[in-house]
Design a protein around this nucleic acid. Sequence first.
DNA 1: AGAGAAGCGGACCGCGCGGTCAGGTTATGA
DNA 2: TCATAACCTGACCGCGCGGTCCGCTTCTCT
Lengths: 239, 239
Amino acid sequence: MASTAAGDGSRPGVEGRRPHDPRVVGDAPARLRADAAHNRRALLDAASATFAEEGMDASIARIAARAGIGKGTVFRHFATKQHLVVAIFCDRLDRLADLGAELSTAPDPAAALSEFMTVGVEQQASDRSFCQAATGDTRNDPAVRAASVRLAEVAETLTARARDAGSIRADVTGQDVVLLLGAACQAAAPVAATAPELWRRYLALIFDGLRPQAAHPLPHPAPTRTQLADEAAAAGSAG
Amino acid sequence: MASTAAGDGSRPGVEGRRPHDPRVVGDAPARLRADAAHNRRALLDAASATFAEEGMDASIARIAARAGIGKGTVFRHFATKQHLVVAIFCDRLDRLADLGAELSTAPDPAAALSEFMTVGVEQQASDRSFCQAATGDTRNDPAVRAASVRLAEVAETLTARARDAGSIRADVTGQDVVLLLGAACQAAAPVAATAPELWRRYLALIFDGLRPQAAHPLPHPAPTRTQLADEAAAAGSAG
DNA sequence: AGAGAAGCGGACCGCGCGGTCAGGTTATGA
DNA sequence: TCATAACCTGACCGCGCGGTCCGCTTCTCT
């Protein structure tokens, strides 16, 4: 799984300490040797699966073993465990955004939004690391923030269409929709082992809350589109 | 904070390996010396606050320092870090259940349910460890399971009253309500630093989904009252 | 084919964690 | 007051983690 091109594992500030460090994209070739490309993909697949099963606490050693490569090779491709996490998390976000972009021209706006949310929750429900990453330091990474913003924009488009069609209450934003994905997932999480599809129930319940018929005034304004960036700034200045 | 009598930190199977280990309640005195009782309370308060701020990854050393006691003292009261976590988590659950029990005789059932959920989410929103504990191994502990069952029963009472009053759709159970507390909390978590009260918005949205006006058929049956126990069994057999 | 860059692997390091223990300290009850 | 059980402390242990390093292998290009 997760065999598409995921992330690059490079940060601008990181300078190679050995001749031609592949983590530096720079203006250099940035061309991967065939075996290196193969290992990289195996690593990303193994990391994706392992993080999904064990959460972000999964050790690099286990991931490397699963990918059939040495531990050192992992750090050749990603300077830090965090960089690896970021690459995979961004990939997840991007894929969901891609789906949303496709759905944004679908004939039935309400069905499109529902489909978008269903896939989004399903993705999270089968991935223990997703919620952890959404709440932890990972969120502050610039690449993650960029992907989050894009996802929010796509969600906003979908939401606006459904709203204009009268399928969704007027006071709900795309940001709300994105954040509610994690909500449905979290509700079902405590009993995920015995009822792996329970998230469908809570997604449906939440979706009912989005309908105009249910609308009661909301006691708090929606988060702004760039709230995640503000969040990072707050986290940086604080603790 | 959290100064009420919280947990006992003892497991039946644990046998003391030193003369009169206080972690064993047994049929023995189980009477704490004055200074020991004081330290224990300081420990529980410090652990509660630290876990809330830093999550369950907070180290025992930090907690001990905050409580002004030695690390060894922590393990004198709680055989394991997990036991300490369980004690605190059970305390949280019990307190919420207590509130629910009080509210179960309030005149307005819908307002009572709303109040119950508001306090429940508020409690979690200010406690980083709560969601982690609700999803991790902690949930399998027998004491936690007992507290969870009690909480579910109280929630069921509140829900039934609101349902009978026609304030809540018929296909929603107390278990649903409990699980949805975590949902509202999780939705707001990613932007908790910049919008600490945002959970109110999502709780209101979810509550709107509980109203009869919004009711659409739910695609998955509600979890049973003892689902958490089954969950533990499944986790035990699997792994 | 051969030179040399690119890539690989796994022993190794320092760290901080949960948990232990021997020996000093203090509350308690007679 | 005093004997003793209960209690506290902090140095200590083993472990597994993220991350480093360098000798060796493998691909690539001419």
